[in-house]
Each structure stands twice: as C-alpha cells, then as structure tokens.
Simulated assay, not measured.
Amino acid sequence: MDIQLRYAAFKDLYDKLESYSRIAHIKNYTDLTSKKYKERIKSLINTVQYEITELESQASIAKIDLNNCNLTFGDLIQCRIHEPDVNKLFTKIEKISLDVFIASNAVAAEHIYNIEVEKCIIPEWILPTSTFLILPEEVRECLRDDIKIIQDFFESNTGDDINIDNLFINELMTTDRIHETLKSWQSVTNIKIQNRYPILEQALYAHKEGKFFLSVSTLIPQVEGIIRDTIESSGKEVDFGKMTDAEIHNAIKSLKEVWKNKNNDTRLLNILDNIIEMVSRLYIDDREKSSHDGLYRHGICHGRLTNFCTAKNSLKLILILDRFICLYDDNLCFDVSE
C-alpha cells in the first residue's frame, strides 16, 4: 500500500494514543492510571513510533515527501481495514478508546449522583444525563459548565422556599439543551430506540413550541416502552402488571443487572437509583390524590386528567427518558470536556 497512506495511518494511531494517555492523566481516571495500564499504552506507542520511524527512513531513501499528500478520512479507514498491521493496532487502540469512554461516563455519573442527593434534587427532578457538561476546574468559573450553573443557583437561592423548578425550566433545560438532547438520541444505534426516535422527535418539537398537552401525552407511554425494551433485550421476561412500587423497583433492578453485565463500574449504576421514586410517581392512581400536578400515567392515558399541560411535566419526562436512553445505548456519552 502507498507509503504515504501507511504513514498517515500510523500517525493517526499515534495521535490517538497520545490523546487517550493525556485524558487519563488529566482526568485522573483511576482505572486508567495504574502502572499496568500505563505500560500497556506505552508499549503500543513504542510499536507505532517504530513503524513511523521505519516509514520515514524508507521515504527518505525514496525521496518521498510524506507530508505532501491528498488523503481523505475514507482513505485512512480503508487502510485500517486492509492493512493487517494497522488493523491489529487499531483494534487494540479501540479497546483503550472504550475504556476512556466508560471512565468518563463514570466520572460524570458520579457528579450527577452526588449533586442530586446533596442538593435534594430528587425525587422531584433528575439532572440531564446525555448532555451534562463537565469542564476542567480551571476554566469552570469563566465558561460555566453544568456544575457551576447548579452551584450558582443554590448560592443565590437559600432558605426553605427555593423554587428548584426555576433551575430546570429557566437555566438547565433551555431550548438549546432540548435540541442537544434530541441530537444525542438521534445518535443512538440501538434499533429499538431508533424505532421510537420519530415519536420522540415530534414530542420534543411539540415541547419546544410550548404544546405540552402533545408532548406529555406522547412521552409518558414511551417511558414504560423503553424500560420494557431494555429488560427484554437481556432475555428477561417483563411483567409489570399495574406498575406498583414493587414492580417499579424490580424493573429498575433488572435495568441495573442489564447494565452491570456490560460494565463493571458501579458509579454508572447509582444514577438509576435516583430515578426509582420519580418513575414510581408516574404510576400512582390519580384518583387517590386530592391535589396534584397531573403527571400520572393512568389518568392521562385514560382521559381522566386535563391539568397536565405544563413545561415542568414535559421536562420531567424528557429527563427520565434521557437517563434510560443514555444507559441503554453504548454510543451515548456524558460530556466531560478537556
């Protein structure tokens, strides 16, 4: 294969390894900063560097300019597929990429879990999951990530009369955030979620237009549908019956088992615990409540309730679905920026 293409492919692999090594160090991902893991990355870097040096030597003898070529990303992909030595290294580096992905998710999940508990956000609300933004502390003050937004809100709102709805409706779940959430759902590769995407898309467009009767009515059955999809995907049978508290807990437990089979980091599982009561509330019989905000599945789906047209109700459902979808699909990632 063309020496320039092989050179570009190995340089690309080298850059990836350097990047992952730097991210693991900066973010202090414990599992990725062990001596054994560092030696693994160093060995791969040395192998790739050797190939690069050899190609530079060959190019020098043949008087080939390695940096003056018109290669596309498609060319690199073909090289990764058809060049055995490039393919072998790329496969190993992909595994490191997945490790970094899981570690970054776990770090974000830990922040989300702690904030929800410490600030008593649950069970009334849960934080955005797929779009939760965490920046390095040194730039947090000026760029304001989600952690800073939440800190500022609670510092400026003290006492027992804090209206936490304002944090979500006016600061966190902005129109831009709704758009980013929809984009993250569109990137999901799982076929069952993709089949639901047209429904979710129209519901979120309705939300952005303030048509909350439409968005709430559309989203509330999707919560149960995605829970069923997730559990059934693991080969388990689903029998929710009337969705009692016990059945909700069993459903979440099954979800945790599904996720645990894919990932060992328990920090990712904690954010499912925070959603249990919030989901349970959806299945309370509205006829047993003297006053309520109208967010009850049975009353809405059977036509008893007419007072559920609020941004708050719509956003709650979006956030519940976002958490389930984010943990359902391996390609969705929390936003932990360098």
Results as ranks from 00 to 15, higher is better:
Glu56Leu: 11
Gly74Pro: 05
Leu332Met: 08
Arg304Gln: 11
Glu257Cys: 09
Ala206Trp: 09
Gln202Lys: 09
Asn250Pro: 08
Ser280Met: 07
Asp265Thr: 08
Leu315Tyr: 11
Arg177Tyr: 10
Leu44Asp: 04
Thr175Ala: 12
Ile134Asn: 01
Ile275Phe: 07
Leu268Lys: 09
Leu135His: 03
Ile115Leu: 07
Arg228Leu: 09
Ile271Thr: 06
Ile300Asp: 08
Ile102Arg: 04
Asn195Gly: 09
Cys301His: 12
Ile191Arg: 14
Ile220Glu: 03
Thr91Glu: 15
His25Ser: 05
Ser215Gln: 06
Lys289Cys: 13
Gln78Ser: 11
Asn70Val: 13
Asn331Arg: 13
Ser60Pro: 07
Glu257Ala: 10
Lys236Asn: 13
Gln151Gly: 08
Phe240Ser: 00
Thr174Phe: 05
His292Asn: 09
Thr306Ser: 09
Arg196Thr: 10
Tyr296Glu: 07
Ile61Phe: 12
Leu55Cys: 08
Leu13Arg: 01
Phe240Gln: 03
Cys301Ile: 07
Ala106Pro: 03
Ile112Ser: 05
Asp12Gln: 11
Asp15Val: 13
Asn261Gln: 15
Ser60Lys: 14
Gly225Tyr: 13
Ile164Ala: 05
Leu135Trp: 02
Lys11Asp: 02
Tyr50Gln: 13
Ala109Asp: 04
Asp15Leu: 15
Arg304Trp: 12
Cys309Lys: 13
Ala203Gly: 04
Tyr20Ser: 04
Lys253Asn: 14
Trp125Asn: 04
Asp15Arg: 10
Asp329Pro: 05
Phe240Trp: 00
Phe90Gln: 08
Asp152His: 02
Lys211Trp: 08
Leu268Gln: 07
Asp85Arg: 15
Leu317Trp: 08
Ile193Arg: 06
Ile150Val: 04
Asn195Cys: 14
Cys301Ala: 15
Thr131Arg: 01
Ser184Pro: 01
Ser19Ala: 12
Asn114Thr: 15
Asn87Ala: 10
Ile275Glu: 06
Arg177Lys: 12
Lys36Ile: 08
Ile220Pro: 01
Ile121Lys: 06
Tyr20His: 04
Leu89Trp: 01
Lys256Arg: 14
Asp273Arg: 13
Asp75Pro: 00
Glu94Cys: 13
Tyr296Val: 04
Ser233Gly: 10
Pro221Tyr: 06
Leu255Gln: 03
Asp15Thr: 14
Lys35Tyr: 11
Leu135Ala: 03
Asp145Gln: 03
Asn70Pro: 03
Ser337Cys: 15
Glu118Leu: 15
Thr306His: 14
Asp145Met: 03
Lys242Ser: 14
Leu282Val: 07
Thr218Ala: 06
Lys42Met: 13
Thr266Leu: 07
Asp176Val: 12
Gln4Arg: 01
Ser97Ile: 06
Leu89Ser: 03
Tyr113Glu: 02
Phe10Cys: 05
Glu237Cys: 13
Val48Pro: 00
Ser290Ala: 14
Leu172Cys: 02
His207Trp: 00
Glu237Leu: 15
Asn263Phe: 15
Ile226Lys: 07
Gly241Ser: 10
Leu13Glu: 03
Val139Gly: 01
Ile115Tyr: 09
Asn274Ser: 11
Phe73Ala: 11
Glu137Cys: 06
Leu76Glu: 09
Ile93Asn: 02
Val258Ile: 02
Ile191Thr: 13
Leu182Cys: 01
Glu137His: 13
Glu110Met: 11
Lys27Glu: 11
Lys95Phe: 09
Ser290Gln: 14
Arg140Trp: 05
Ile169Leu: 04
Phe168Asp: 00
Leu295Asn: 10
Pro221Trp: 10
Arg297Phe: 05
Val336Met: 11
Asp75Val: 00
Ser314Cys: 08
